[in-house]
Write a protein that binds this DNA or RNA. Sequence first.
DNA 1: TATGAATGAGGGTTCATTCAT
DNA 2: GATGAATGAACCCTCATTCAT
Lengths: 207, 207, 207, 207
Amino acid sequence: MNQSKILKDLISDNLVSDPNGARGRLLKEAARLFRDKGYERTTVRDLAAAVGIQSGSLFHHFRTKEEILKAVMVETIRLNTALMQAAVDAAPTSQEKLRALVRAELESVNGQTGEAMAVLVFEWRSLAEESQADVLELRDIYEKLWLDTLESLRQEGRLLADPFVVRRMLTGALSWTVTWYRPERGGLTLDGLTDQTMAMMGFAAGT
Amino acid sequence: MNQSKILKDLISDNLVSDPNGARGRLLKEAARLFRDKGYERTTVRDLAAAVGIQSGSLFHHFRTKEEILKAVMVETIRLNTALMQAAVDAAPTSQEKLRALVRAELESVNGQTGEAMAVLVFEWRSLAEESQADVLELRDIYEKLWLDTLESLRQEGRLLADPFVVRRMLTGALSWTVTWYRPERGGLTLDGLTDQTMAMMGFAAGT
Amino acid sequence: MNQSKILKDLISDNLVSDPNGARGRLLKEAARLFRDKGYERTTVRDLAAAVGIQSGSLFHHFRTKEEILKAVMVETIRLNTALMQAAVDAAPTSQEKLRALVRAELESVNGQTGEAMAVLVFEWRSLAEESQADVLELRDIYEKLWLDTLESLRQEGRLLADPFVVRRMLTGALSWTVTWYRPERGGLTLDGLTDQTMAMMGFAAGT
Amino acid sequence: MNQSKILKDLISDNLVSDPNGARGRLLKEAARLFRDKGYERTTVRDLAAAVGIQSGSLFHHFRTKEEILKAVMVETIRLNTALMQAAVDAAPTSQEKLRALVRAELESVNGQTGEAMAVLVFEWRSLAEESQADVLELRDIYEKLWLDTLESLRQEGRLLADPFVVRRMLTGALSWTVTWYRPERGGLTLDGLTDQTMAMMGFAAGT
DNA sequence: TATGAATGAGGGTTCATTCAT
DNA sequence: GATGAATGAACCCTCATTCAT
């Protein structure tokens, strides 16, 4: 099942907003602004201007600015959970599953459609505590995919460290790429970056 | 050369503020607040209250709030550069040097004295561009320690990935520990966490 | 002529809106909300929600929010003028006329059907000046009933004070009951409250 | 003890703000604006302009706009309680005590210094519920003066109605004078208005 | 008539910064 | 140095009103 099919299904189930609709367009711009300037530095006027409406009109779609942040995070996590699941399902071995997860997360963080993943990671503190609890529930599903894969590798003797710790390290490492990885300037492709990540963990490409 | 000696030297060279002086105390509290609440969410009144003065009085020590952030970063990086250098110098092999660097950075990020390192990483965006240039210069020295060590390991065949990429991955991974590592709740010690980090990269403890 | 007959006549003359119609229902809810929360604190969304429509739809019935306030006042004053007139006509003596007026006004202010009277008194300031002039004209008819009755009592030597002043004092006193009189909690009935009002003025019950 | 002496004592006890100080001047202007335009229609910018400062500066003295309303009410009630107490103490008979209370309340509501009393009465609903509880406590002292006096008259057989009801009626009647009594246009003086009020209750002047 | 998205002015409040004392 | 009142721009959000559908 390819990416656009996954997205289409989520949209028709109302789990993710249609990127062509008013709400979807706003969330996309919000994700971009939040990633680039940070949640705090992004004003509701910035958000409104980015989709060509007045700031007051925002509040037709969302009750508060924070609700926008939450929506960005919730929809991102839903989309990425579905993408990760598909990636894992399609990979035959544990190592390939891991590679697929790394690759998918790098794409989420750095890709054109996925700037919201960086928001999820770096603006977490700006989310109200009540909202954090809601998002954490969704996050658990997502994290389980990682932990199961890492656990398998551990049992196969191909991973020396604790899967839980490794996952958290990888969260930081992969998210952090958003601050420095610039594929457009030539150099490393996303596949190359994935290879490097695997190599850092001692997995040579193609083994 | 132990840590307190290093600190003392830096203080007497006026490279780092005396933590007992007014300026030093403020920077320490600022680092803590910036790490805990973020730069944007920390008000100058918060900063002033933390050291028991009025907000207006802050501006006798620093011209702007951003100058405080910059000072936190500059002094942090000076201190940590000295600490890292000492750590590297004391380690005989490349792998031990790497372990020392990891351990030192984890301590910087999570330790009692070093909360400022997290600020350096996560509040970078809040620093004015002109200030970023200044800090980056200092950072290069610091980064060189890492790159040299990783390069050696690479040449020894013990590291498969590109040192530059690995360093950036480690920056993210190690900084991110501030969001989840809670030694006080029992469990992993800083040494244990260091071991895990090394293990993730394929370096078994004591090899 | 009883109350419902009076109301029916006013409706068929188009002087008061049918409480079963869209306009009448809205005015009734508006009166309740204006009395309970005040005109300023009542939003058009509140008004719309109270009759189960969207806020935009309100403006098919009234050009502005203030027009709703004016309509509440105008219809209230029309209805109450008719009720007062009937009450006065039915009472044989001046004292009984006064009692009937007091009783009728207390009922208007506190009764189930007449919550709008409190609006007329306490939200006067919110009415635009142009509208005030229109309503004042209607009010004069209403006030004349009071003044004529008080004047008679004065001439009979049963009232020591100036009728004009007494009427204004009674306006305040009777309107103010809306803030404290709670018949549902037991205690004073409307008749009892009427007796008390008369007693305050030196008119013993049944004299 | 005359009025200015009473005021001076309250000021030196910090129960009422000095009308020459920043806080006192603001409260005075706030009372005037709240009475003239209503609390809701008065903006913090109006308040600030009335004392010649910027709106942001208001929040140095008061945390919220509502706190200003509360302060107006609290200080008013403190001042008026002291004035009423003095008025009652100075009057020898129950009837004269009542007259003194009526006269004092009329002066509070309509006098130059006392515009705040009208705010206390007519803006009650705008006060947050928690604040209402605080103010009510103060109000009880004030009301007791009235109730004791009315109770005495009742026992002397000079008042037919229930003191509790009479007090509430008088609250409405006397407060309402603010909406229509215009001494400057000639006609009734405050003493004359007091006489009329007493006469309405069957107390001839000088009896 | 009814909807509901959009408007746009203005609301209360925050906050880094200034400055007379 | 320290204070604290004052600034003024900007913030998030509200709300009466409009209008295409």
